[in-house]
């Protein structure tokens, strides 16, 4: 995968989709509570944590898709207004760091997640073009 802004934003959506498919209530609560973050290590062990608790999940499929020489990934979330969530994605690579900023509407993400997004996340199959296109639309280009 090319390290481009849209592709990295899609990766943010995929991590959230996996977390959401594992525990809808806790994921929503964590993202809306402000100050939540997702950390992923080199092996793909992922953790969404914040004031409301901790959710551990497998982030390997997303990590494999990113393809960069990554040490860790950190995504910090901020609740900007209503259901609008801002985020900063940091890729700590073996050499250097990369940061991407963006935002999305959690309501839209959840609505999508009841259908195509979560089915794909549950199956951990991320090669559907329509799935990527949907995430790109929600997370912005």
């Amino acid at each position: 995968m090319e390290l481009s802004s849209p592709e990295l934003k899609v990766a943010v959506g995929k991590f959230i989709s996996i977390a959401y498919s594992k525990d809808k209530g806790l994921t929503t609560q964590l993202l809306l509570s402000g100050g939540a973050s997702i950390t992923v290590d080199e092996q793909g062990h992922a953790k969404l944590s914040g004031k409301a608790g901790i959710l551990v999940f497998n982030g390997s499929p997303v990590l494999e898709n990113i393809g960069a020489n990554i040490k860790t990934i950190n995504i910090s979330f901020s609740n900007e207004e209503d259901m609008k969530i801002g985020y900063t994605l940091t890729l700590n690579m073996k050499f250097g760091r990369m940061k991407v900023k963006g935002d999305f509407d959690l309501d839209e993400m959840i609505t999508s997640c009841s259908g195509l997004l979560c089915r794909a996340a549950k199956a951990l199959k991320f090669r559907h073009a329509s799935y990527d296109a949907e995430l790109k639309r929600i997370l912005g280009n």
């Binding site: 250097g96 760091r97 940061k99 900023k101 963006g102």
Partner: peptide, 26 residues
């Protein structure tokens, strides 16, 4: 090295920044 991908082109730095500086101001 630090790579920044801001949302808007106006957010690109208009002076030389070292990686730590650029990361802190992102």
């Amino acid at each position: 090295m630090f790579i920044a991908m801001p949302e808007k082109v106006e957010d690109l730095p208009n002076y030389a920044q070292c990686p730590d500086e650029a990361e802190a101001s992102f």
